[in-house]
């Protein structure tokens, strides 16, 4: 049996043999190193609340809220993720090699969320500075009330993209089924192409940045003052 001391900086945590609570306590206590979570079995709240630059690989499908509140850690889910993956991420990277369910990256303040497959409804809901790159499609109501950050979608977006959006930037390569209230298409200027190119590079996904179209707020719905634009 592994001791807590032996796995402080590296190790395999097998959820067939230990509880999620114990596994998370080990990950949260580590300040560096690489860990593998085996047999996740769709359990909820895996690798949550990590505050140090550790690396975690989840070998299989995760349940709800995996990688929630992440700060500095790099988490890779080798499979699908349930509702709210990387919710309220502060920094670091959360990567899903499969699909993500609803509300991926919800309320994220910073860091990078990469969904290599599809994300379903409400991806990036209320995002507050996080960057989200989705290799496939996003479902309806994505970037709902998004406040800051970038959402890059290599596939298509569902209905009501960017509904009630504040100041986040939305980049979609494919079709948008319907734009949400107060969300409009905007000019794709060279600096936006550069943003998309940089995010694709960080995400390790390949696409021509010039193929993306940009969407954002028409600023008719909230009380926007041009004098304050520098604050955003």
């Amino acid at each position: 049996m592994m001791t807590a001391e032996a796995i402080t900086n590296a190790g395999v945590l097998d959820l067939a043999e230990m509880s999620v609570r114990d596994a998370n306590a080990t990950l949260q206590a580590a300040t560096e190193g690489a860990f593998t979570l085996r047999n996740p079995g769709g359990r909820h709240a895996l690798a949550c609340g990590l505050m140090h630059p550790v690396s975690v690989t989840v070998e299989g499908h995760a349940g709800y809220y995996c990688g929630g509140m992440n700060k500095e850690a790099e988490i890779t889910i080798r499979g699908n993720a349930g509702t709210g993956v990387a919710e309220n991420i502060m920094s670091g990277i959360v990567r899903v090699t499969g699909d993500a369910s609803q509300s991926a990256g919800a309320t994220g303040h910073g860091g990078l969320v990469v969904i290599e497959g599809n994300a379903s409804a409400r991806c990036g809901i209320s995002m507050k500075g996080v960057d989200i790159v989705v290799g496939g499609n996003v479902g309806h109501m994505s970037a709902f009330m998004a406040q800051a950050g970038n959402l890059v979608v290599l596939g298509d977006a569902g209905e009501d993209l960017g509904d009630s959006i504040y100041e986040a930037r939305l980049f979609v390569r494919g079709s948008v089924k319907r734009l949400g209230t107060d969300c409009i298409e905007k000019e794709m200027r060279p600096e936006h192409v550069a943003i998309v190119a940089g995010l694709l590079d960080r995400a390790g996904l390949f696409a021509d940045p010039s193929e993306f179209r940009r969407y954002g707020s028409a600023r008719r719905l909230y009380n926007f003052k041009i004098d304050n634009v520098g604050s955003y």
Binding site: G42, H44, H61, G98, S101
Partner: peptide
Amino acid sequence: SEFRAIAQLPGVEHARIWEPEP
């Protein structure tokens, strides 16, 4: 409702898994 209910089925590691569209 959640994947964890499916996780123990025989051969699940080879399953096609997806979220049904609304």
